[in-house]
């Protein structure tokens, strides 16, 4: 059950077999670990930088990819302004798209 693209091919079954192999290796490594971890004791308590977490603290969804969004901020701000929500802009951009497509058909 493989599909080819002319250059390479993709076979999910092979991939699944390989992935199972990798998982087996990972499991074998995990089995080598220390066995002193006990559930239900204070070993389960979460720590942040060595401090006990204050009540209600956690890593929220917005904290993941924070740096990413921060780095792209100039672009994202501009894109946000582009999606102004004003109906006149919608129609204006539709006209732009229309003019572009007519020009391309006429010239191409």
């Amino acid at each position: 059950m493989r599909i080819g693209s002319g250059e390479g091919f993709w076979s999910p079954i092979v991939w699944v077999i390989l992935a199972l192999g990798v998982l087996a290796i990972g499991f074998a490594v995990w089995l080598q670990g220390r066995r002193t971890y006990k559930r239900g004791t204070e070993q389960e308590e979460p720590f942040l930088s060595g401090e006990r977490l204050p009540e209600g603290a956690g890593v929220g969804a917005t904290h993941l990819y924070w740096g990413f969004a921060e780095a792209l901020k100039p672009l994202l701000v501009r894109l946000g302004a582009f999606h102004s929500g004003f109906l006149g802009d919608y129609v204006g951009w539709l006209l732009v798209l229309l003019v572009i497509s007519i020009l391309v058909v006429m010239l191409g």
Binding site: H83, F86, L87
Partner: peptide, 9 residues
């Protein structure tokens, strides 16, 4: 329409 812009961004 300039004020009805809750759906933006």
């Amino acid at each position: 329409a300039g004020k009805i812009r809750e759906l933006k961004g």
